[in-house]
Write a protein that binds this DNA or RNA. Structure first.
Lengths: 197, 197
DNA sequence: AGCAATGTGGCACTGAGTGTCAAGTGTCCC
DNA sequence: GGGACACTTGACACTCAGTGCCACATTGCT
């Protein structure tokens, strides 16, 4: 099992990459609304129809990276014991990722802030993170309805706090220490977490 | 000053109302995606073009009420002294509103959960609430960057908690006491608020 | 009544997103 | 290596959201 890529899949990766690169470049140059899918497809040497086979919407192409991060986050907390600490760890790991890809992510963030439809998608990705956290917090024991509610509130607060940190980080061109920002914010929220018992 | 409505404005209100009613009714019957703007306009006896003079998007017609609530919320905290208590009071007042319009709002909530684009708009309205809270929390003294960050995190947490409460309330057909749910959630978050001194 | 302001309908247009089908290309098996 | 098969692509046509424009009707004001 686990056969190596094969020509077909390699091509798929190449096209996917070409579309993302072309799209980001064009968006950066002229703004999200001023670029049509036709132009992106042309710049990546595929047809318009093919673009929509790789991405469900024009917005989605901006969030390709984010989707990968979500998957990484999901995996990072999958095996760890449920609780606040696992989430903290996974988020800080994500923070490292952000810092490493700083330039790229700052471009994306700047882009996202210019187009309302991108901001909305951003929020939806946040909700996906939130869901993963809730699932993790309630993984083994579902407990009472009240516990579930508390877990959901905690997850929402964490996601909100992280968003605030990333916004501040991006606004200052990635200059402040994102990991410290995040760590402080999470410390602030730790009291909301259910007692470790 | 402050002249009474006049025929023109009365008509505007009537059309606005007709569009909302027609839209909600059709959406409820067949689902958001299965209804075109043409149909809504026809059902309200106006042209398609006129629909877009009243609402910027097909989604917006669902959130007419929400926009009014946001305005009411903004007004409710406008004169009160800055801080957590003002926000708590305004939110609980909003809760009363929700309970009073229970049937209506449950329909809207059910609708919103069926269409992704509506969920996104929902999140955006939440962000608007968040902004109003942040503005209120930082109204007089802007304080340090750290204080601003804390205020933003608090606002995000509050909005998230309120959303969780409303979701639970709607999922159970408006049976639980929304005001109590909200009050408990806010008590949980009160420690995050800056010290009153 | 008559003029200015404003709201409306109709029309044409752009652009996102989808269904369909024929042609191209990779994969696999003999 | 060659052919059958599965998958991918491009082209075309279509629906529908949203916008600009202009002629026409309605309202407000004097």
């Amino acid at each position: 099992m686990n056969v190596e890529p094969g020509l077909r899949d390699k091509k798929k990766v190449r096209v996917h990459h070409a579309l993302v690169e072309a799209a980001i470049r064009l968006f950066e140059q002229r703004g999200f609304d001023q670029v049509t899918v036709d132009e992106i497809a042309a710049a990546a040497d595929v047809s318009r129809r093919t673009f929509f086979r790789y991405f469900p919407t024009k917005e989605a192409v901006v969030f390709a990276r984010r989707d990968e991060q979500l998957a990484a986050f999901r995996e990072a907390i999958a095996d760890k014991p449920e609780g606040f600490d696992a989430i903290r760890g996974a988020l800080l790991a994500l923070g490292t990722d952000y810092v490493e890809q700083r330039r790229r992510i700052l471009v994306e963030q700047r882009l996202i802030r210019t187009a309302p439809s991108l901001m909305m998608h951003d929020l939806e990705v946040d909700r996906a993170f939130e869901s993963v956290m809730v699932e993790h917090l309630l993984a083994r024991t579902k407990r009472t309805v009240g516990d579930q509610r508390r877990a959901k509130i905690l997850a929402a607060a964490i996601v909100g706090a992280v968003r605030v940190c990333i916004e501040e980080w991006a606004e200052r061109d990635g200059e402040p220490d994102l990991r410290k920002l995040g760590a402080d914010a999470l410390d602030l929220l730790e009291p909301l977490a259910p007692r470790p018992r």
